[in-house]
Design a protein around this nucleic acid. Structure first.
Length: 267
DNA sequence: AACAGTCCCAACCGCGAATCT
DNA sequence: TAGATTCGCGGTTGGGACTGT
């Protein structure tokens, strides 16, 4: 059915990796660097397909991978980013240094999905009074349930260059609330030029000043749904990075997007 | 102790995007 | 510019570990 799997060639190893295979792959990448996955197995002397090698390296062998329990802070960040981005695990992982998209995806599917789902259903049931009892003892994998879906549907786009955000003025902007907290506001957010367009009735936030990026630091935007429509989230090159050195900038940027992430009514 | 059910996570699969020729 | 190739992502699966009976 469909196209043949990439690892279907006879003689290629599949399944769990042995310590010896790990060593071979690690040593090869140490010498030759990442990339060229297609030919890597042949060159390295591994009886695996390139895809399998890449996955093993990215999810397990990379030296900067942080293993072990996900902290409460990380958990909270994942939940917030998931609300904003949906199932874009690689982007979410890019905000959690040392964590892989696969790990976060697994963690969501096994733990957070249930957790968030039950919180949402609790909230909605307390609002609406009686609701059908949630299947607490049902199977782990939650069935597609609108209550577990982000209320703001992310639109999946590729990043492209953009420096402005258009926020419809007809809706209540969380920035109004956000701006009330003058003392907690990140200082660089004050440089964001927020103007309102008299014709369109929109707020226009100039992120090029807001984020203070040089032209090649700024990569583009991701588009997400929010309010009654669509808004764009600026994306820097660091957004895709997973290395630890990007952490400070990452947290800064997150902070600067705090007004998008904070607030119940915002989702 | 043995079995069944559930959980968790590494690995696989297929698709779309990006890049190459 | 079109087709081929390669890469990267998200969804899904398989199987070992754990827990309950």
């Amino acid at each position: 059915m469909g196209r043949s799997p990439c690892c279907s060639k006879e003689g290629l190893n599949r399944g769990a990796w042995t310590a010896q295979e790990d060593d071979i792959l690690r040593d090869y990448i140490k010498v030759n660097g990442e990339g060229g996955w297609r030919n890597l197995p042949k060159k390295a002397g591994l009886n695996r397909c390139g895809k399998s090698c890449r996955l093993r390296w990215l999810n397990y062998l990379r030296p900067d991978i942080k293993r072990g329990n996900i902290s409460e802070d990380e958990e909270e960040l994942i939940i917030r980013l998931h609300k904003l981005l949906g199932n874009r695990w690689s982007l979410i992982a890019g905000r959690l240094p040392g964590r892989t998209d696969n790990e976060i995806k697994n963690y969501w599917n096994t733990t957070l999905g249930k957790k968030v789902g039950s919180e949402v259903s609790q909230r909605s049931s307390s609002k609406k009074g009686k609701m059908s009892k949630s299947k607490e003892t049902s199977k782990a994998v939650p069935e597609p349930d609108s209550s577990t879906q982000p209320l703001t549907q992310p639109i999946r786009t590729k990043a492209f260059r953009c420096t402005k955000v258009h926020i419809p003025a007809t809706i209540h902007s969380p920035r109004e609330d956000y701006n009330k907290h003058e003392d907690t506001k990140p200082t660089h957010s004050q440089s964001a030029q927020q103007t309102s367009s008299p014709d369109s009735g929109e707020y226009v936030v100039d992120f090029s000043q807001f984020l203070d990026f040089g032209s090649d630091e700024f990569q583009g935007i991701d588009t997400c749904m929010g309010f009654n429509g669509q808004f764009d989230v600026p994306v820097t090159k660091d957004w895709m990075r997973s290395d630890i050195s990007g952490l400070e900038n990452s947290s800064m940027e997150l902070e600067s997007l705090g007004f998008l992430l904070d607030g119940e009514g915002w989702y």
